[in-house]
């Protein structure tokens, strides 16, 4: 069974069926087989966070998963967030706060932020720093990334309060 087998995966709402070798990493599957090169690959051992995507709603390292493990799974990548014309609110916050320079770490930062925002109120900047500690950025010095995530979290919290009031 080192032979390729067919996996069916839903990526950003689109169903794909592809023949994969068991050893194919999810990161390479997304980039090479599906052409979704928004997911970046830095270290391939779980340390840099650039390859972070969501699988069934949870952030994971796509370099530490095999495509073959994901039969029937739902994957979200940075391509699913927004478009250049209509940025997702988190992308918009990164844009407004100049939270990227080369952009290599950005897809992983964004997908991690999405998971953090779903799981935690990110009440203070300490929580943001802790939450992003598994994502390395070699350019920005992190300050603007923290500001961007702060804005995204505050917007969400305001939305939640407004909903609770109305």
């Amino acid at each position: 069974m080192t032979e390729p087998v067919i996996v069916r995966v839903n990526v950003n709402g689109v169903e794909y069926a592809r023949r994969v070798e068991p050893r194919l990493l999810l990161s390479d599957f997304l980039r090479n087989d599906l052409g979704l090169t928004g997911t970046h690959v830095g270290c391939e051992h779980g340390v840099c966070g650039a390859c972070t995507v969501l699988v069934n709603g949870d952030s994971v390292r796509s370099c530490l998963l095999l495509a073959i493990q994901l039969d029937g799974a739902k994957v979200e990548t940075v391509e699913g967030l927004g478009t250049a014309q209509a940025l997702h609110s988190v992308q918009k916050a990164f844009h407004e706060h100049h939270a990227l320079q080369c952009g290599f770490c950005t897809p992983g930062m964004l997908m991690t932020t999405i998971d953090l925002l779903r799981k935690s109120p990110l009440a203070n900047d300490e929580d943001i720093r802790e939450g992003l500690s598994g994502n390395l950025c070699r350019c920005t010095g992190y300050q603007n990334i923290v500001r961007a995530v702060r804005q995204a979290a505050d917007q969400l919290n305001t939305l939640a309060t407004d909903e609770a009031i109305s």
Binding site: G46, G49, T52, D58, S59, V60, R61, L64, L65, T112, D115, L116, K119, G131, S133, G134, N135
Partner: peptide, 9 residues
């Protein structure tokens, strides 16, 4: 233990 994405798996 590690980071959120690692703890998720």
């Amino acid at each position: 233990v590690a980071h959120l994405a690692i703890r998720n798996r």
